[in-house]
Design a protein around this nucleic acid. Sequence first.
DNA 1: TGTTTCACG
DNA 2: ACGTACGTGAAACAT
Length: 885
Amino acid sequence: MTEKKKLLLIDGNSVSFRAFFAMHNVLDKFVSGDGIHTNALYAFNNMLEIVLKDEKPTHALVAFDAGKTTFRTEMFSDYKGTRAKTPPELMEQLPLIQELLNLRGIKTYELKNYEADDIIGTLSKEADEDNMDVTVITGDRDLTQLTTDKVTVKVNVKGVTETEAYTPEHVKEKLGITPEQIIDMKGLMGDNSDHYPGVEKVGEKTAIKLLNEYDTMENLYEHVDEMKKSKLKEHLINDKDQAFLSKKLATINKEAPIEIKLTDLEYQGDNQEQLIKFYQKLGFNSFLERMNVEPEQTQEALSEIKYSELNDEAAKNILNSTEPQTLIIESFGSNYHLDPIIGLAVKSGDNYYATTDISILENPDLKAWIEDESKEKYTFDNKKTIALLHRYGCDLKGVSFDMLLVSYLLDTNDNKSDIGIVSQNYGYNLPMEEEFYGKGVKKAVPEDDHVLMNFLSQKTKIIAELKDKMMSELKDNDQDSLYDEIELPLSNVLAEMEIKGVKVDATRLKEMENTFATRLTEIEQKIYKEAGQEFNINSPKQLGVVLFEDLKLPVIKKTKTGYSTSVDVLEKLKDKSPVVQMVLDYRQISKIQSTYVVGLQKFIQQDNKIHTIYLQTLTQTGRLSSIEPNLQNIPIRIDEGRQIRRAFVPQHEDWEMFSADYSQVELRVLAHISGDEHMQEAFKEDYDIHAHTAMRIFGLNSTEDVTPDMRRQAKATNFGIVYGISDYGLSQNIGITRKQAAAFIDSYFEQYPGVKKYMDDIVKYARENGYVETIMHRRRYLPDIHSKNFNVRNFAKRTAMNTPIQGSAADIIKVAMINMQKMLDKENLQANLLLQVHDEMIFEAPKEEIPILEKLVPSVMDSAVKLDVPLKVESAHGKTWYEAK
DNA sequence: TGTTTCACG
DNA sequence: ACGTACGTGAAACAT
């Protein structure tokens, strides 16, 4: 029995283009030793890895364009006329990509006067006739015309590692036409990027409609006279020649005079030896890892540092030095509140010290140095380092450079939490944590202590060497005070909050667990009875079958895997069957039970407290996030869930929980940065802002005429504005038509012209500068603002509008937290700041201190920054978190 | 490992 | 004509 043959055809030029732009933002970070860019090469190879694994081809070829002139330019001199020429940074990579393919055992081919498309078209047809399966990989949708039962065309979506697979069925489903009709469609609609015209005013939708009626362009033109008089008919007649020319240009030539045979295309597999050399030359460490190149070899790439044992004598030297020194405390695991320290390294001047003997932390000299605020230190992740050392009895002070925080401020875009990635971005060859320790079952501390100590010493070296460069980048961005005055001091405050932890009443949670378990069983039985069958209510798939097939409820929305059963869908089906309400109830309770009642108990430590971890360098806007567990999403909106808050208690008897939150910070921030007069006035006069908005957009004379429903709609509109309004989004949210929503927005902008101007200006700013920033100069880069894709671009626009608002609000509470901690210290209060939930702070305090906090906290919070409108703070307190609201 | 759902601001 | 609200984390299921 012969194995089925499979041919892989890759459109070399279009995938290289895609690869280049997918990694355009890291262009400068991917440069080889001899100064050649390698970003496209890297991304291309990433794609290859995935494709080879998925497709397992027996034959493969990558086709390239041969040059500028082809048979198409002879037909139409302006073909691809306006296309920007290939950037030189990509040009220089094309030979490398060919070399890579050669080493990976894949043939490449180009043919004078023909495009890569034509080579692929010709070969895929040949292979099809030979009964081979064919997969085509391309960034160009036009190639979907080649789709047949045997030929699948996979088109890159966002980047190059993900593709959308086009079979004839998928083409039909997506476009409503057959693959053969695609050229007719292109003929009618033309192509902007290839710069051929088609018929005036005919786009994709119209073209498809016409083809559904007339099947082919030829048939359409045979019957064009019978069409009833319309602009469309006129355009069709006027542009007939162009349409036929465009169709010809769009048609991939399946008879190109290629000199290569299918049998020449056998996939050879990697030339291991040469490929390793190639990767090494380019510093492609992650690919080397994937080839299972012996760890020794990868380690070799990491140069050796001459370090000595971090012992008593070294500790003395460290303490005696007056220079800033670099410190790495390494833990192993995912939660630094529990993980053990496995090693330490200090760079002191030109000396490197490292050890895996943790008892050195008992050395008085080392401890004195760690705890001396005047001894300046550099590190990566100050908060984590503080938390780790705290558990070993040391109180770290004096960190002035935290490489993690700085790299986050410089660019929030990609994952900065790994020192290996940050180092690689600056041209250093340091493995990522996962590369060094391994992943999954293979994850382990290196057996050889020397390997670990060398790794830690490398870290200290890189941190020390990059400090000046990164700090000067901060200064260039005008972000030095954001770092010095906010993020770095905040990391100390957050460390204290995490270490302090919040006490949780486990008994209470246990009681709730039993109550909810009983209720869940009850509802479950009722649902089974009503539905006439038993099934897993938690399975969207099974629930979908019961609701939409067995009970035949109308399908409101679909997900990519089946029926949607989300709340907004179920809400609409409530009166159609009693099961729906039961399912909603079940969902609600089940969520509370699994995520909170049961989930939280798992995080209660020996001290009866929960110690969350705040991620200070994750969000794109500057907010914090909280994990293991997330204490920023404890239920409040519905009372059953809100009961969870009764389990959060102060750590001592006779203490209380105290919480203070900003009222409408984001809208106040908007009023400030937009400078809108009317909105500012509303806040200065302390009006009910949503009622005020309702009054204005509904054209009333007084807020007394505002009905509760008007206020509700105005409130939703205010939210929409903050999120970067769209009529559709608003209409969905408050259940009105899109037209009505659009009218709302128009009237909103009329009433608050300053807001309108802000929205326009900020998008323009993003386009011109490539980023937006907050009041404290926190930046978010928005490369997508230039995207050709409508959706992607619009998303970037909304982000541009929202980020300065959400981000400035985040800045404000961060300042308030720092000031608050200072104030508690200064006033010698026992109260502890425990939690932050975006616009509120939660404290525990002795009862006697509550009256003090009631004055102090709001005054610190509302004076955190000076805006053109006042900030307003509300507070509450009680025996548990539940009462403190 | 990805998808869906839902908790919060 | 395009298809959406902004920012998060966790649990459960399906693959």
